[in-house]
């Protein structure tokens, strides 16, 4: 009973207190399970390339930002229903997604997708059963090819599927898989050839939110112009040269 009162009381205080000072706060949505783009660090906070970049963009656009995490599966529906205002979650700009939401120009160049399998496997692993995260460009790519696709909710699950033999290989962004391969101690390896699917990674905003999109667009352009975006990419992606 005391907990009820406490929570109800706290909620009332919070609602009345905050309605007095309705400032502009941009809520940044991300997945928190796609290192090094975004992940939850050991303190339970959102961290990664997109966290650092997002905070810098907000600073340049003079916006106050907070971070929230959401399942990858429902990340677009929750943006359009207004639970948060942007998506920065390693999301490639595709025509399909562009019909539902708007994107800023890319803040990470098109990254080839790679296959990863057990180190004992050969290139045939890429044409058998291939794991991919649900609703990704990779899942769509495999579905359209001759290989069989099995979909999982998170990146972690796709790797687990390869380890326990449920899938022959996994297809995902090269940068995200590189971390996994490096940490596997030689049990996992890249196989076959990389494939180029999808465009660069951009920030998703609601179609009705043109003003916000323009602000971030300008901030991204200014980071490209002064080279700080290149530096940040090099820092998070093992010295990769983005060349913006």
């Amino acid at each position: 009973m005391t907990l009820t009162k406490l929570l109800a009381g706290a909620a009332i205080v919070a609602i009345t207190a905050t309605s007095a000072m309705a400032g502009e706060v941009v809520r940044m949505g991300t997945e928190g399970a796609y290192a090094p783009y975004n992940f939850i660090n050991d303190n339970g906070e959102v961290d990664g390339y997109e966290r650092e970049l997002g905070d810098e963009l907000c600073k340049r656009a003079n916006l106050e930002c907070t971070w929230v995490t959401n399942d990858w599966d429902s990340i677009i529906p929750n943006l359009v229903s207004g639970n948060y205002d942007t998506i920065m979650a390693g999301m490639s700009i595709t025509a399909e997604r562009d019909e539902v939401i708007d994107f800023t120009s890319e803040y990470f160049p098109a990254d080839p997708s790679s296959y990863v399998a057990l180190s004992s496997a050969d290139a045939s692993a890429t044409t058998g059963v291939v794991a991919a995260q649900t609703a990704t460009i990779q899942a769509a790519f495999i579905a359209a090819s001759d290989a069989t696709v099995v979909e999982f909710a998170t990146m972690e699950d796709t790797i687990a599927a390869v380890r326990n033999g449920e899938a022959d290989s996994v297809l995902a962004d090269h940068a995200a898989l590189k971390d996994v391969v490096d940490a596997s101690g030689g049990t996992l390896a890249f196989v076959g050839d990389d494939v180029a699917i999808g465009g660069g990674v951009g920030m998703g905003v609601r179609e009705s939110d043109k003003e916000l999109r323009d602000k971030f667009e300008a901030a991204i352009a200014s980071m490209k112009a002064d080279g700080s975006l290149n530096t940040m990419i090099a820092k998070w992606f093992d010295g990769r040269k983005a060349g913006y």
Binding site: L7, A10, T18, A22, V68
Partner: peptide, 30 residues
């Protein structure tokens, strides 16, 4: 309703987007 988007004015947001994260979580909890 604008296409796919559900848009209300900033002051009508529940909870307000300026509220701290724990308010959002308490609201979700309720």
């Amino acid at each position: 309703r604008q296409g796919n988007d559900f848009v209300v004015c900033t002051a009508a947001k529940m909870p307000l987007s300026s509220s701290p994260q724990w308010v959002h979580e308490t609201y979700g909890f309720i």
